[in-house]
Design a protein around this nucleic acid. Structure first.
Length: 845
RNA sequence: GGGCGAAUGGCGGAACUGGUAGACGCGCACGACUCAAAAUCGUGUUUCGCAAGAAGUGAGAGUUCGAUUCUCUCUUCGCCCACCA
C-alpha cells in the first residue's frame, strides 16, 4: 500500500498557502473578528520546542476560528533587540544587525515548516527603524503627557568593563564577564510613570475574566496595594529635623511602639555622612548576601542615633531612633515605627537591642497581662494597654478608629500605598531603541523634534568589550539644530518597551504616520486570545497593560484600556536527562536503545544513567531540535505529539516513543483514507447510515467542545477513537455517498490539528475551497438507548440498558429479572429509591 | 516568611454543573504473519483473589442515597513573591 509522503504533501500545501495568501487578512466589518496572538519570539538562532508548542497551540485556535467563519488576525514578528545579539556580536566580531537578521530568516523558514496559518504580510521586527521610529514617537507622546521623567537611580556597575550590568549578569556580587566586584553607582535614568495607573491596573484585573486566576493574583501582589496611614513623629532633640513621617498599616498598635527605624538612604542620613561609625554601619548593611532569600533572612542590625521620637498619641512615650538595615527607602517613606509585640521582625530587633516590648493586642478581651516571649502575636483580638483605644476590636475596628482619631487631631493622614515602582527604561546598551532625547550645553534634556525621527542606531560592526558603544559614537552623538549644538542621549530603551505595543502594530504594520491606524486598531483590538509562557505573567503583561493606559490617557480616539481579553499560559516542554558514568550530561541524540536498554551510540557497552525529567535546557543537554524532528516525522506528527499527552497549560514530556507513535498514527489515518476513498463498491447499499451519522455528529461536538476548553490533549484521544470506530464502521454496508459525506466532515474537524493531512485528503475527495466548520445536530446526537446504573446502598451492582426517558417502575421490573442484581437485594425490604432519569437508580435496603 | 496551585495504574493523563473511576496514548505481556528479525495486525493490562467477590483517586474527618469532584484539618510536591512597615 502507498505510504503517506509527508515530505511532498506538506511542502505542497505550504507553498499553496503562501501562493494563494490563504491567511492574509483585511478589515471586514461584515464579519466578526478574532485576534489570535502568540508571544513573539526573540530571534536567538533556531526555534526550540517551546516555540513549537506555543505556536501550535495558537495555530490550532486560529485555524478553528477561521473555519468557524471569523475574520482571523494571526500575525508573527520578532522581538529582535536585546543583549544576546550584542554578546554574539562581540564574540564573533560581527554586527548585531547581521546576526539578528540571519537568525530571523532561518527561524522564519523553520516556523513556516510547521504549517502555521500566519499572515506573513504583517511581519514586523522591533529592531527595524520602521518599528522603533513609532516607539520614539510614543516616548515623546508620553513625555508630553507628563508620564516620563528623569531621576537618579542605582545601577550595577562593572568597574573593569566600564559598563552597567543587568541583575542577571551579576553573579555572587561579581560581573559575569570580568569577574570584578560590582559597584553600586548612581546614574540619571529615564522612567515611565507606571505608578500613576496603580489603581487602574489593579482594578482592571477584575474584568479580565478570561485570564488565569494565577496571573491575576501575581499581578495583584506585584502592584501590592495596602491601606493605612502616614503618621508624623516629632523629634525632640534635633537641630536639623523637626519630625519623621512613617507609613503604617497598623496605626492601632502605636501605643506598643518602642523604637523608630529609618533606612540608611533616608534624608536623615545626610546629617551622618561624616560619622565614621555610621559609614561603617552602612558598609556592613551592603555586604549582607546577594540572593533575595538571604536578604530576607539576614540578621536585623541597627545604628542608634541620639535622637528621640515622640509618640503622637501620648507625648510622654519617647523612643530612640535607629538606622536599620531592614527598612527600605523604596517603599513607603523609608521609615517605620517598631511595635515588637506584634511584628516578628520588630521583635527580633527589639530583643537584640534590649528595647521594651509592650503588648497592645490581646487575643481575649480584658487580658492585660498577656505576655510576649520570642514570638510576636499577629492574630486578631482586642486592643489593650492603649489608653483610649482599649477594648477596640482588632484589626477591623481598631485600625479605622485610630486613623479617624489621627486625622481629627491632625497627627496623620489616611493613605493608600503601592508596592509597584516606576518603570526605569534606560539601558546602557547598544542594541536597543535609541531614546529620542538630546541635551544642550547646560545638560538640559530636550525632545528630538518629531520630524527628525527616527533617531537611527548607527551601524557598528565591531563592538568594543568595554563601555557603552553609543557613548563612543562621537559623530552620531552630535546634533545641530537652529544653530545650537546638542548631544544625544546614549542610553537605549528597555526591550520590554518594544514588546509593550507590538500587538497594536500588527493591526496596521505598514502605517507610516503613527504606530498604528486608529480605525484598524478599533476593529482588531483587543487581542482575543493571547498565548505564551507564564514567565511573562508579571512584567511583560503589566507593561503592556500600562502602555494601553498611557496611550489612551488624554486621548479620546482610543477607548481601550486592556490589550488582552483572553490569556492562556502554556507549560514547558520537558525531556528525560541522561548522564554517562562520569556524570557528564548526554544528549538524547547520542543515545540509542539496544535490547530495551539506553546505551551510548558510539560505544554500546556504556550504559546511561537516566535522570529526572526536566524542562529542556542547553546546559542539561536534554533539548530536541524541532527542525530535525520535522524532517524525520513531518509537521503534522510534531503538531499532534506536542498537543497530546498533557493539557496545554501543564508541562509536557517529549519522548522518542511518543513522536514515533504519532507518526505511525498518521500513517494509519492515511491507510484508512485510502480504504474510504477507493474501495467502496456500490453494490452495498443496505444500511441507511444512522450509526455513522450519529458518530460523526458526536465527534464534531466533542472536538468543538474540547477546542473551546483548550483540552487539546483530549482531542488527540478523540482522533484515536475516531480511527478505531471508522475502521469498524467500514465493515457496514453504507453507500459511498454516506461514507464520504461524513468522512469529509470529520476531516474538517481535524484540520486545526493536522492541517496538511486534512487538506490533502479533502482535496483528493474534491474539496478545496470554502471549507466551513461542520455543525452538529443535537437531535441526531441523542442516544435512543441508555445504560442505567443500578446501585444498591450506593454500590454499583449492575447496568440495565433501556429506552430513553423510561418510568421508574418499568426499570424496577427489569431489575427484578436480573439475578446478579437481585442477589444483592437479598429479599430485604426496600426503604428508599433514588431515581435519576436516564442515569441511575439507587435502592436503599 | 507570605501567596497560589497540584496530588488518580508501571508512566503521561481522562471523567460535563456530585451519578458506571482509569477514556486515549506510552510501556509491558501474550498471540498471528515470518526461516528469522523489523514493521504490521489482534488480545490483555488498577490491586488482591483460582473464583464469587473485595479494596481503590496523597492521609484523616464531614456533608450526601451517592464524593476524584463540595467543606475542614494535615502531609508531600511545584510555581510565584519576598526585610513591603
Amino acid at each position: 500500500m502507498e505510504r503517506y509522503n509527508f515530505k511532498i504533501t506538506e511542502k505542497k500545501w505550504q507553498e499553496y498557502w503562501a501562493k494563494n495568501k490563504t491567511f492574509s487578512t483585511k478589515i471586514d466589518k461584515t464579519k466578526k473578528k478574532f485576534y489570535c496572538l502568540e508571544m513573539f519570539p526573540y530571534p536567538s538562532g533556531k526555534i526550540h520546542m517551546g516555540h513549537v508548542r506555543n505556536y501550535t497551540i495558537g495555530d490550532v485556535l486560529a485555524r478553528y476560528k477561521s473555519l468557524e467563519g471569523y475574520n482571523v488576525l494571526h500575525p508573527m514578528g520578532w522581538d529582535s533587540f536585546g543583549m544576546p545579539a550584542e554578546n554574539a556580536a562581540r564574540q564573533n566580531m560581527l554586527s548585531p544587525k547581521d546576526w539578528t537578521e540571519s537568525n530571523i530568516s532561518n527561524m522564519k523558514m523553520q516556523l513556516k515548516r510547521l504549517g502555521l496559518s500566519i499572515d506573513w504580510d504583517r511581519e514586523i521586527s522591533t529592531c527595524s527603524s520602521e518599528y522603533y521610529k513609532h516607539q520614539q514617537e510614543f516616548f515623546l507622546e508620553l513625555y508630553d503627557k507628563g508620564l516620563v521623567y528623569r531621576k537618579e537611580q542605582y545601577v550595577n556597575w562593572d568597574p573593569v568593563d566600564q559598563t552597567v550590568l543587568a541583575n542577571e549578569q551579576v553573579i555572587d556580587g561579581k560581573g559575569w564577564r570580568s569577574g570584578a566586584i560590582v559597584e553600586r553607582r548612581k546614574l540619571n535614568q529615564w522612567f515611565f510613570n507606571i505608578t500613576k495607573f496603580s489603581s487602574e491596573l489593579l482594578k482592571g484585573l477584575e474584568n479580565l475574566d478570561q485570564w488565569p486566576n494565577k496571573v491575576k493574583v501575581m499581578q495583584k501582589n506585584w502592584i501590592g496595594k495596602s491601606f493605612g496611614c502616614e503618621v508624623e513623629f516629632k523629634i525632640e532633640n534635633s537641630s536639623n529635623l523637626n519630625s519623621i513621617s512613617c507609613f503604617t498599616t497598623r496605626p492601632d498598635t502605636l501605643f506598643g511602639m518602642s523604637f523608630l527605624a529609618v533606612s540608611v538612604d533616608h534624608p536623615l542620613s545626610k546629617f551622618y555622612e561624616d560619622d565614621e561609625k555610621f559609614k561603617e554601619f552602612k558598609k556592613q548593611c551592603s555586604t549582607t548576601g546577594t540572593t533575595e532569600e538571604s536578604i530576607a533572612n539576614a540578621e536585623k542590625i541597627g545604628f542608634k542615633t541620639e535622637l528621640i521620637a515622640i509618640n503622637p498619641l501620648d507625648n510622654n512615650l519617647k523612643v530612640p531612633v535607629y538606622f536599620a538595615n531592614f527598612v527600605l527607602m523604596e517603599y513607603g517613606l523609608g521609615a517605620v515605627f517598631g511595635c515588637p509585640a506584634h511584628d516578628q521582625r520588630d521583635l527580633d530587633f527589639a530583643l537584640k537591642y534590649k528595647l521594651k516590648v509592650t503588648p497592645v493586642v490581646s487575643p481575649e478581651l480584658n487580658k492585660e497581662k498577656f505576655k510576649i516571649q520570642d514570638k510576636a502575636y499577629t492574630g486578631p483580638g482586642y486592643i489593650c494597654n492603649s489608653s483610649f483605644l482599649n477594648g477596640l476590636k482588632c484589626p477591623d475596628e481598631s485600625i479605622i478608629k485610630t486613623i479617624e482619631y489621627l486625622e481629627n487631631e491632625k497627627l496623620g493622614t489616611k493613605k493608600i500605598n503601592f508596592r509597584l515602582k516606576d518603570w526605569g527604561v534606560s539601558r546602557q546598551r547598544y542594541w536597543g531603541c535609541p531614546i529620542p532625547i538630546m541635551y544642550d550645553a547646560e545638560g538640559k534634556a530636550h525632545k528630538v523634534p518629531k520630524e527628525m525621527l527616527p533617531v537611527e542606531l548607527p551601524n557598528i560592526n565591531r563592538l568594543e568589550p568595554t563601555g557603552n558603544p553609543l557613548d563612543k559614537e562621537i559623530k552620531w552623538k552630535k546634533v545641530s539644530l537652529n544653530g545650537k549644538n546638542y548631544v544625544r542621549e546614549t542610553d537605549t530603551l528597555d526591550t520590554f518597551v518594544d514588546s509593550s505595543w507590538y500587538f497594536l502594530r500588527f493591526c496596521s504594520p505598514h502605517n507610516k504616520n503613527y504606530g498604528f491606524d486608529f480605525e484598524e486598531a478599533k476593529y482588531w483590538m483587543p487581542v482575543d486570545q493571547y498565548i505564551g509562557g507564564v514567565e511573562h505573567a508579571i512584567l511583560h503583561l503589566l507593561y503592556s497593560r500600562f502602555f494601553m493606559q498611557a496611550l489612551s490617557y488624554k486621548n479620546n480616539n482610543l477607548n481601550l484600556k486592556e490589550p488582552f481579553k483572553g490569556l492562556f499560559t502554556q507549560g514547558m516542554v520537558c525531556h528525560e536527562t541522561y548522564k554517562d558514568p562520569e556524570n557528564n550530561w548526554i544528549s538524547p541524540d547520542e543515545i540509542e536503545i539496544k535490547n530495551g536498554e539506553k546505551v551510548l551510540k558510539k560505544d554500546n557497552s556504556i550504559q546511561i544513567k537516566i535522570g529526572p525529567i526536566e524542562s529542556m535546557s542547553k546546559s542539561k543537554k536534554n533539548t530536541i531540535d524541532p527542525e530535525k524532528i520535522i524532517n524525520t516525522y513531518g509537521a503534522d506528527s510534531v503538531r499532534l505529539f506536542i498537543l497530546s499527552d498533557s493539557p496545554p497549560e501543564k508541562d509536557v514530556q517529549w519522548s522518542e516513543e511518543g513522536i514515533i507513535s504519532c507518526f505511525k498514527f498518521i500513517q494509519k489515518l492515511w491507510s484508512l483514507h485510502l480504504k474510504i476513498s477507493g474501495e467502496i463498491e456500490e453494490k452495498h447499499k443496505k444500511d441507511s447510515g444512522t450509526n455513522l451519522i450519529k458518530f460523526t455528529h458526536q465527534f464534531i461536538k466533542k472536538i468543538t467542545d474540547n477546542l473551546n476548553n483548550f483540552s487539546y490533549n483530549v482531542i488527540v484521544a478523540n482522533l484515536h477513537e475516531m480511527y478505531s470506530i471508522l475502521s469498524k464502521e467500514m465493515a457496514n454496508e453504507y453507500t459511498r455517498e454516506t461514507i464520504v459525506e461524513n468522512y469529509k466532515k470529520i476531516l474538517i474537524a481535524v484540520m486545526p490539528i493536522i492541517p496538511h493531512f486534512s487538506n490533502e485528503c479533502l482535496s483528493l475527495l474534491g474539496t478545496r475551497d470554502n471549507i466551513k466548520w461542520p455543525n452538529y445536530d443535537k437531535v441526531i446526537i441523542e442516544e435512543d438507548f441508555v445504560n442505567i446504573v443500578v446501585q444498591i446502598n450506593g454500590k454499583k451492582r449492575g447496568l440495565i440498558k433501556t429506552k430513553k426517558n423510561i418510568q421508574e417502575d418499568i426499570i424496577l421490573e427489569n431489575i427484578k429479572k436480573e439475578k446478579n442484581i437481585m442477589k444483592h437485594l437479598n429479599n430485604l425490604e426496600i426503604k428508599k429509591k433514588i431515581y435519576i432519569q436516564n442515569k441511575l437508580i439507587n435502592i436503599i435496603v
